[in-house]
Simulated assay, not measured.
Amino acid sequence: MRRFALALAGTSLALAGCGFQGVQSIPLPGGPDLGDDPYEVSIEFENVLDLVPQSTVKVNDVNVGRVEDITLDGWRARVTVRLNDSVKLPDNAVATISQTSLLGEKYVAISPPEQGATGELGDGDEIEMVATSSSTEVEEVLSALSMLLNGGGIEQISTITKELNAAMSGREESIKSVLRRIDTFVGTLDRQRDTITDALDKIDDLLVKLDAEKETIADTIEKTEPAIAILEQNQKDLTKMLVGLDKFGDISTKVIRDSKRDLLTNLKNLQPVLKNLNKTGDKLPEHLGTILTFPFSDAFSNTVRGDFANMNMTVSLDIEELAHNLLTGTEYDKALDKSLKKQAEALRDLVSPPGISVTQTPPGVLGVGDEAGSGTSILPSIGMGDVDPAVQSLLMGGLS
């Protein structure tokens, strides 16, 4: 009896010296084997839920240690675990608070990262909060479900369904038409996806080029600043000029509107001229060359060679040909084939061919009675004695 009392007293003193914190400080029987030389690791969690000391620490669902202490470090929870010395983990291991079943106890699960395991976890190391997490609690699931069912999403879905039914009632055909158009639009986009992708690639290339030339663009913008300043200084004059241009535009519009009828009349009157000018075709440029040598042809320069001159002249007094040459393109042109043709036939019977004589004096030789230096006449003499006076007047007027 005395020995039992001494043992009990010794045990009480030992517990008091170790800082007894209740039943949770007593190691559970049958707990994980920590070996002869276990090592401690500190783990930071945002929330440890209902994790308690003496909880199990597992690696790949195998018990390898236990939770020694849980303390508060600011707004974080710091969990100190003790692991068996045979457990080898990387220095960047991750930790999670899980539970054995839906309503089971909590435990700490430590595992290597999915990629990039480095180093080795040792005594005194720390797993930071960025590498820790906690599983979803049943309480959280039930709370979210309660919010969904009581005034949450379900009720809102019911309200949305009722409003959609009220909005679509009587508008089924319009909604179907809209849906068909959306389907067509989406189909068109799908068919043009290569073109859209190519356009986006080109825009990307453009942005790359703009980024490469950003210094040049910035320099250009800086150099345009003086021009902008000049425009700002002349703002009033520019505004006045624009107002004047507006008035000029109104006046021009009024002038064009008022002169529309006269302009159309002038264009109609110009049409016959252009039509006859078009008829001349390629002949007009050829005959324009005779203006400088009128009334002679452009080959007149070959007539005089040194002190000799050659000339061959043909004079046609046919009334029909003269009238045709003089009246072509006028309003009397159409009357040539009728009345004028008959008159020309009557005049042809009355007019006899004129007598034409050419001087026989050799070119360059003075004739009788000619004075020295007066030159030699090379013009032909045309006899008009047998020509009708009206024809003579017409010919003399044309030759003059």
Rank of each mutant, 00 (worst) to 15 (best):
I230H: 12
P362H: 01
D190M: 04
K240S: 10
I110W: 02
V87Y: 01
I157V: 10
L292S: 08
E371R: 13
N266Q: 05
S158D: 11
Y332S: 05
G364S: 06
Q54N: 15
V62D: 09
L263I: 08
V94Y: 05
T359I: 02
A346M: 13
E40I: 12
N47D: 15
Y39A: 03
E286D: 12
M168W: 06
D33Y: 02
D205L: 13
P272E: 00
L72V: 13
I127Q: 06
L72R: 13
S357L: 11
D298L: 11
D246Q: 09
V57N: 01
L245P: 00
E331R: 06
E331H: 07
D282V: 05
Q21A: 11
V57C: 02
V23R: 15
H324M: 10
L210G: 01
K279S: 09
T118F: 09
R2E: 15
K106W: 09
E320V: 07
P353A: 15
T11P: 00
A299I: 07
V178T: 10
L292C: 04
Q392L: 09
K279F: 06
E155M: 07
A14R: 00
E345D: 14
D91A: 15
M1T: 15
G19W: 01
N234R: 15
L336A: 04
P112K: 05
D246G: 12
I230F: 14
S169V: 00
R181M: 11
I154W: 02
L6C: 08
L49E: 14
L206D: 08
G289W: 07
Q21K: 11
P354E: 01
A335H: 09
P27H: 00
G289N: 10
L350K: 15
Q99I: 04
P29D: 08
D349W: 03
L347Y: 10
L142S: 06
N302T: 13
E44R: 13
G116T: 03
K341E: 12
A323Y: 08
E320G: 15
A16I: 05
T303V: 06
K236W: 00
D386N: 15
R76F: 11
E173T: 12
I378A: 04
M129T: 14
S111R: 14
V52P: 00
P389R: 04
A16S: 05
D85E: 14
S252E: 10
L327S: 03
S134I: 05
V178P: 00
E140H: 07
T161I: 01
N278E: 07
A372L: 12
R261D: 08
S98Y: 09
L270Q: 03
I228E: 14
L142W: 02
K338Y: 10
R78V: 14
P363F: 13
R3W: 13
F248N: 07
D198W: 08
I217R: 04
G367I: 03
Q392P: 02
A117V: 05
V64H: 00
V23D: 09
L207Q: 11
E46W: 03
G375K: 03
